[in-house]
Design a binder for these strands. Structure first.
Lengths: 185, 185
DNA sequence: GTCTATACGTAGATAGAC
DNA sequence: GTCTATCTACGTATAGAC
């Protein structure tokens, strides 16, 4: 069953968004799937193998998401708003999975650390390209440091998800507004 | 030894900044202190007791830090820069401890969840006061939503620490610049 | 592929001696 | 206060049957 592998990755991703790499266990997954832990180990021998599969899945999702936004036939400003919204949805019911793995950075295996680093860089670069385009079009002022702006935009997206969960208050529309203001000046 | 209690809290705080609540153990602390685990349990019977002590310590530090910034005899714009810098230093060698606890939110005991929620709100309110003052003085434009701005500023501070660790690249000066730009327009 | 059984380590916690 | 000893639970992982 190649589909079981996918199910496991999907569940692991959910758990990482919910409670992080360290806190989730093969037991969590096996119970939700109605099989034994040993069965999960058949598909992913070690936990780090599963984690790598999860980062690959995130990478892939992020890639197609960024592609689709860039190919949209709308003004760059709309693209930016759309990318923010799509990234917010990536968090599912929890926080951003990349943020979660970044926070657990010192506890994750080296192979996973490498993937998380690449993933973070990839996400950042994608945003820099879009914001760079906005700068060419004059939406972003010419003196603005695009790299710093990309860091800020991503930090705001991820931060809004953290605060949403902890304060039980959805301030994403306000934050979104704030990001747009940040970009347009 | 009332001092031992403080040592333990300090070490636990370091460990939370480094790898989070779930990943750190009494064994980590006891080894660094050269005593046994049982000895740590004498001072803090349960792990959640220690975690509560840590959140109290953070609250206290944050409070005095914000007080001192507000009492400085410098322009509001300088106060903002100073508070950013002081908050960045709160992370020690790891990330912001509040962020770390926020990420572990679903895995921490209820008493600790409550403290983290209060702490997050306290930090946010402190920033809103300072930014509100800046708005009165015309540094922040009158149409800007101060709450959203505070979320954004905090997200950027915490985000810069995450990226610093993962990408092994210190972009805090750039981010700082970006935050100031965000505030002044 | 999934099961049972099991090994091995570690984590949080307690009892009682010193 | 700190120790030794010990408990119980859980997590990761493997062996071998079905």
């Amino acid at each position: 069953m190649e589909n079981r592998k996918t199910q496991i990755i999907e569940l692991a991703l959910d758990l990482i968004r919910e409670k992080g790499y360290v806190a989730f266990s093969y037991d969590d997954i096996s119970k939700q799937l109605g099989v034994t832990k040993a069965s999960i180990h058949y598909h992913f021998e070690r936990k780090e193998d599963l984690a790598v599969a999860v980062t690959d899945r995130i990478h892939q999702t992020l890639k197609s998401l960024m592609q689709s936004v860039k190919n949209e036939d709308v003004p760059t400003e709309e693209k930016i708003k759309n990318l923010i919204n799509k990234q917010l949805k990536l968090s599912g019911k929890g926080i951003c999975p990349i943020s979660s793995l970044q926070t657990d950075f010192e506890s994750i295996p080296e192979v996973v650390q490498l993937r998380v680093r690449e993933l973070s860089q990839f996400e950042l670069t994608g945003w820099m390209e879009l914001l760079g385009q906005a700068q060419v079009e004059g939406i972003v002022k010419s003196f603005v440091d695009i790299e710093a702006l990309a860091y800020a935009v991503l930090s705001c997206i991820k931060g809004s998800l953290q605060y949403k969960r902890v304060l039980e208050k959805d301030i994403t529309p306000q934050i979104m507004e704030q990001i747009v203001r940040m970009v347009k000046r």
